[in-house]
Amino acid sequence: MSLIDDFLARWHEYRRPGYYEEFDYHWTMTVDLDRCTGCEACVTACQAENNTPIVGEDAIARGRHMQWMRVERYWEGEYPDVKLRAIPMFCQHCDAAPCETVCPVSATYHNQDGLNAQIYNRCIGTRSCAVYCPYEVRYFNYNNHHWDEPLDQQLNPDVSVREKGVMEKCTFCIQRIRQAKDAAKDDGRRRVQDGEVQPACVQTCPTEALVFGDRKDPDSAVSLMLGNERAYTVLEELNTDPSVVYLKKVDADAA
């Protein structure tokens, strides 16, 4: 009866919320809205890195854009006295993600790096994860996409091309994280150092509004940003515990 003994011995572990006692890494991104100009360079970089399809005019008009990283624009006030608020929005990699529990086939789960992983070839396309996500950052492949020549030559070989009927979303460029971890292992080091891995959006941001790193390293750039008093998470009241932290934009003319 070793099976049952084993089961009972690990009972405590199975009943622990979130299962992991501690993540190996806790990848976190901060978005400094004071630095963000809304230039959308991150959007383009993401598109190029992750083989996100270019859906075309018709699909955009029907509301079927595919942008793992999008910049939401909110206008405040009446013309001419208007202010533009730009908020980059992408998968928040919530530690209590509503999208994960709802998948009937476990195509999305929380991995040991604190990332919300999406397994494309397990996905059956119920789209319930997209409904459950309050941030609306999951994108569905309504049909197969194709890349006109020579665009098909620039597809990233490290990232799969998704077929119709599959849900996809930001992965924090998991292919880069994996490469960095492999490189660290080859060098004989135990851990990836701060600054060794950057998602495409962070790498591209001209104003360095995006900072990426391991929250478990107290000296990493991202850990230092977290202590900022402007820090907040989007839709905090929903208790999703996101891994993306925004730094509030403070208006100069505000009292």
Binding site: A59, A130, E136, N141, Y142
Partner: peptide, 15 residues
Amino acid sequence: YYGIGAAGMNHPTVW
């Protein structure tokens, strides 16, 4: 053959 795109669903309204 075509994908769910044959239906009218879109980004916020996936159902």
